[in-house]
Each structure stands twice: as C-alpha cells, then as structure tokens.
C-alpha cells in the first residue's frame, strides 16, 4: 500500500504552515486519519503540509480559567496530563479509549476534530466540555465555540487554509465532574456510541448539565432536550428514562452492519443513562 505521489512540505511554525497551504493541500498532523486514506488511495492530495514537528502547538497549558490543549497534542499526552485530569476527567477517560497505544502516541486532538469523523471520541467530549477551538489563518486567529464547530458529516467550521492551534477547555464546575462512556465497534475501535457527560451537582441534582454524543448521527451533537429536561431534576433512573425519549430528535441516525438505527438509538439511551448516573 502506497499513496499516490504528493509534495511533502515540513513546516517549522504555524505561520510557515499557513504560507504553505494551497487549494489542493492537506495538513498532516498525527496522520492517523489521513495516511490510511491516502494509502488506500481513497484520497489523494497535491501537497501535504506536515505540522507534526511544530512544538508550539503540542503543549497542554494550565491557565487560570481554562486548560489550553495544543492542536498537536497527542491523545497519549492528553491521557497523561494531570491538569486535565482534575479540570475535565472525561478528557483522560476518552483519550484512553481512542484507537490503541500506538495510535494514541501519534494521533492528535487537532487532527481528530478537523477530520470530524462521525464516530470519533473527541467531538462528543469537547461538546460536553463547552470547549473553544482556536484557529489560525493567514489573517490572524479566531476562536470558534464548539457548538458551532461540527457542522455536518465530516464537516466543520474550519475553512481551507486554516489550522487548529489549540482547544480551550474551561475550568468549570461541570467539567470537573465529567465522564465518558463508550460502546466500541470491536474492529475499528471507533464509537458505535460514545457519550460524554458533565454536570455541576447539587446533591443528586445537576445545576448544569452538558451531554455530547458521538457515533449515533452524522455528526456529534448535544441532545439539548435531554439536557434541559434534567437540569434541576434528580438524576435517577426514572427521571433519566423519561428524559431520553427524544434523544435522537433532529438528527439522522446512522446505520451499519454493527448497529441498525433502532439499536444505535437504543444504545445511545443506555450509554447516556450510564454516563449520567456516574455524575451522581
């Protein structure tokens, strides 16, 4: 397996990378989504701009109000980070479930969310975390609210010629009480359903609640009605069951030979319930 020919360009800084990007180029981060597609020749590219050597975007910085995770931070480094472990424990929990050791050592969070695979783990987690995506382009820098970031099937708010340099995870009462529950497709290790949940609790009752679901639909999303129905209500089986009825409202549920629409939807309910019960 060998890709079609392309030009390889190594960038030493984000600015250099931005200057190298052209219409038919792609950014090479960890490469664990892109390289397999290129090898199978399901995808081809004229120029590959390698940002995997830019140290400036690999770090994880603990700031006063947020933890800033570099776009080039690997899943492994996120899993091992102590600041995130206390600010948003679901980050480490989710990181541990991505791919395998080797994939976690190379794959990056920025690459993953730019790719926006509908069954990837990070989108669900970042939606729950109320993260912000820091994006650089030739004109400067912008921040996109995660709720506006995943726009469709493999589609994001990232425009051509832009690079994700960081993700900000706010330090909040809800993020510090957060979990990730995943039902794995056993061959690919992607999520058939993955549910990230976080909430600031008053006893057994959430004062705030955010849920991110991946794998179920063509993009990761927040089941807003479920969140709304449960804020201020005790998180017990009966209340959760009552709230889960419309978990898939407004999204088109995916199906494959591992999980039909009906079963996937059922799994989403089971896993959301499991995640929510762990918040208590």
């Amino acid at each position: 397996m060998i890709p079609l020919s392309f030009n390889y360009k190594k960038a030493n800084s984000v600015d250099e990378a931005l200057s190298m990007l052209t219409e038919d180029s792609k950014v090479l981060g960890g490469g664990h989504s892109l390289i397999p597609a290129l090898k199978l020749r399901l995808n081809s590219v004229e120029t590959l701009v390698d940002i995997s050597k830019i140290d400036a975007i690999k770090g994880i910085n603990d700031n006063e109000k947020s933890v800033t995770v570099g776009g080039g931070a690997t899943h492994a480094s996120i899993a091992a980070n102590s600041a995130l472990a206390s600010a948003a424990p679901m980050m480490a929990e989710a990181a541990h479930t991505i791919g395998d050791i080797q994939v976690r050592n190379m794959g990056t969070i920025g690459g993953s969310i730019a790719h926006a695979d509908p069954a990837a783990d990070w989108p669900a987690v970042l939606l729950a975390a109320d993260a912000n995506v820091v994006i650089k382009n030739k004109d400067g820098q912008r921040e996109v609210d995660i709720d506006q970031f995943f726009t469709g099937f493999y589609e994001t708010a990232l425009a051509e010629g832009e690079i994700i340099t960081a993700i900000r995870i706010p330090k909040t009462g809800f993020n510090s009480n957060s979990v990730y529950e995943k039902f794995k497709q056993p061959a690919s290790r992607f999520a058939i359903v993955g549910v990230a949940a976080c909430g600031e609790m008053d006893g057994k009752t959430p004062k705030s609640l955010r849920i991110g679901i991946t794998g179920l639909a063509e993009r990761a999303f927040r089941p807003m009605e479920v969140e709304k129905a449960l804020i201020g209500k005790e998180l017990n089986e009966a209340n959760i069951d009552a709230a889960l009825g419309n978990i898939a409202d407004g999204v088109s549920v995916m199906a494959d030979h591992y999980a039909s629409e009906k079963y996937r939807t059922h799994l989403a309910k089971v896993y959301t319930k499991r995640a929510l019960l762990r918040l208590v």
Partner: peptide
C-alpha cells in the same frame, strides 16, 4: 514511543 510504522511517512 510505540508507533505503527505503516502510518508514518519516512520523511517524518
């Protein structure tokens, strides 16, 4: 770090 060498370019 353990890495799948089929998913890394030689030039990297």
């Amino acid at each position: 770090a353990a890495t799948k060498s089929c998913t890394v370019l030689a030039v990297q």
